[in-house]
Amino acid sequence: MAEITATGDRRRLIAMLSPAYLWLTVAVFLPLSAMLFFSVLTALPQDGPDWSLTLQNYRLFLTDPVYATLLWKSLQLGLTVTVICILIGYPCALVLARTIRGRARETLFLLVILPFWSNSLVRIFSWAIVLRGNGVLELGLNAVLPFDVSLNLMFTTHAVVIGLVHSYLPYVILTSYLALQAIDDDIIDAARSIGAGTLTILWRLLLPLSLPGLLAGAVLVFVPVVGSFMEPRILGGRMGTYYGTVIEDQFVAVYNWPLGAALSFILLAVVLLILTLTSPILRKARL
């Protein structure tokens, strides 16, 4: 009897989970497998009959220093953008979750997620209009300041960082906000009642208790920024060659899919390695 119920349960479980697994197979597993296959080919099968298996694409990453240099540059970019997002986003989330109440909070929250609703390409081109020489920002500053400023931020690393921070800031704000607003008000009241000031409460309670949310936000920013190519290309111009743009080039310009796929998998491996190495430290910080 119990066995029949168990098999019945299992059948129902499989029936209910299968759409999710089917979707994962179609959307994630199959494309990734195809890419993995491409990454060990000399050429794409549809381009000609003379293709064979090779590790040359991976070997190229090790022999030609330009790829490693670019990956390092991209990792630095990811770190910079993540740190800036945390420095701006966490205080925003803190004010939003712990100070502002009622209607004003809803309005501000809407403003935070508003960028999500606009097309990212449109957003980046808007930044181009703002940042370029004689652009909106420069004209505005010159109108206010008594002396002439020449910013010319366009096609610099700064422009890339500004564009990326703007795109990914909401992730840090949202995850930190969720963690912060889940903290019981009584805990803060209890700390105040035994004499803790604002800084002590922030350092000993709010920050450690919301750290999981903050770290989740940081990962959500770091991973896509390391592989980003749109912002670097449009806002960085000649300075905007990064690991992500090289991968994109392999797919759309050079049409060397095997190399692009191999570079993608190296990126994936490096990011996973970084997350694995840092997770013990992060877990320790959480306690």
């Binding site: 009584d186 009241d189 209890a190 700390a191 009642s193 309670l205």
Partner: peptide, 14 residues
């Protein structure tokens, strides 16, 4: 300089 106890104890979980 007071001491206070709360309904749900409000201990610091971390």
């Amino acid at each position: 300089d007071i001491g206070m106890m709360f309904q749900n104890y409000a201990l610091f979980p971390n």
